[in-house]
Design a binder for these strands. Structure first.
Lengths: 223, 223
DNA sequence: TAGATTGTTAATCGATTAACAATC
DNA sequence: TAGATTGTTAATCGATTAACAATC
């Protein structure tokens, strides 16, 4: 269970953080974060677990249960204050740190990702974009980013402390870039291509792509 | 290949299809399908549950359990025949039918999606792409698709039996298009924007975007 | 106050996993 | 045969849900 252990009721226990969030909880919390961020942009001040449930497709009891495991963030009869809940979830997900991302591929998908303001909204930063097509080197992408020469990879990974490599390139090119990233110490690879990447056990690959996401949804809703 | 030539009649019960797959099973089956498709492209003939587990991050026992619920598809000591398993999973997911998709937004993300061969691989078809920017109308996108005028929406939905509307456009434009889709009877909307869409209860909205996907992964692997 | 919504309990359901006999 | 891998069981764990008192 998520409420791990009983507290002595005499003294009010501080909100507890389990050492490690379960995958399910972390996934749901990040979905709440996404909806809260957007609701805030729309000028909302508070939101109920019922509304969060409609937008996330997570049961409202599950939402209240997820949140109450970390503290009493809501107000009965009112709902949750959006600013306050955003701050709490960010704290729980430990997103205060600055993490730098390198993006590979300046095609349509790479440009779509580089232009997204999702990362700025959530404290991550794309610090470099590479393309093996030398014709694209120097081209301006998104917000103040320029396509860099692939040969700079090693220098950039070291200088900017790149922890995640994002592959937004054709399947045929993905493995070679993954190999280079692994050689230079990058431990997390986000793979938007359809390639089945071979990496050493200490490296984590997360594969998903917009088209494959859509495919999943189609199976759910049409089957 | 052997397309389930075995018909257990006397003793063993025939492979059973539950009326409705659970969300989890459907999600996992479609991930297996994705990996199998790619493995086939790489020239592989068979694959073990262990290998599938490495690529999908699903436990190998879970994979065998998922599959054995529908029949005995594997060969002990060998693994699963890829062609045969592809056919079985497609049958289970009922992907034989032709489903037509309309895409809204011919920007970077829209073009990335339209250019993907994932849909052709899996029996879905993007039959129309729209953009409200009249300057883009007529432009060729992906494979033999032309950007159509937004005013053609009603005619296209009806003529081509569009069951899914895909929104690959800025958040500010998403709600208006969603409203039009709903008005014309589309019941499933895939929302790649960050907008929180308001739709009637009979309409299903699935929201996800490449950048938000990446964000989830970052929480998992960096937290 | 009256209405709304949280926080929490208790019960159920489905997912996950280790282990291993069956068998290719 | 020897090695590998499936199919399946049994046990555990986490997710889900309805219900409702607390309380804003």
């Amino acid at each position: 269970m998520s409420l791990s252990g009983r507290h002595p009721q005499a003294t009010a226990p501080p909100p507890r953080e389990p050492e490690r969030l379960s995958l399910g909880v972390a996934a749901r919390l990040s979905r709440y974060l996404q909806v809260l961020t957007q609701a805030k942009k729309m000028g909302r001040d508070t939101i109920s677990s019922q509304e969060l449930a409609e937008y996330t497709h997570v049961n409202s009891t599950q939402i209240r249960r997820d949140l109450s495991g970390f503290g009493k963030f809501g107000k009965r009869g009112v709902g949750y204050n959006i600013d306050s809940l955003l701050a709490q979830i960010r704290r729980i997900l430990r997103t205060s740190g600055q993490h730098n991302i390198a993006l590979f591929g300046a095609g349509h998908l790479g440009q779509a990702i580089a232009s997204s303001d999702v990362f700025a909204d959530h404290g991550f930063q794309i610090v470099a974009i590479f393309d093996t097509d030398s014709g694209k080197v120097g081209q301006e992408i998104g917000d103040a980013l320029r396509v860099r020469n692939y040969g700079d990879l090693a220098a950039v990974v070291e200088a900017d402390d790149i922890v995640v490599g994002v592959l937004a390139l054709p399947a045929a090119a993905a493995q070679a870039v993954a190999d280079d990233l692994v050689d230079h110490g990058v431990r997390v690879i986000f793979n938007y291509s359809e390639a089945l990447l071979q990496v050493p056990p200490e490296v984590t690959v997360h594969t998903s792509s917009p088209a494959v996401d859509l495919l999943y949804a189609l199976y759910f809703y049409l089957a």
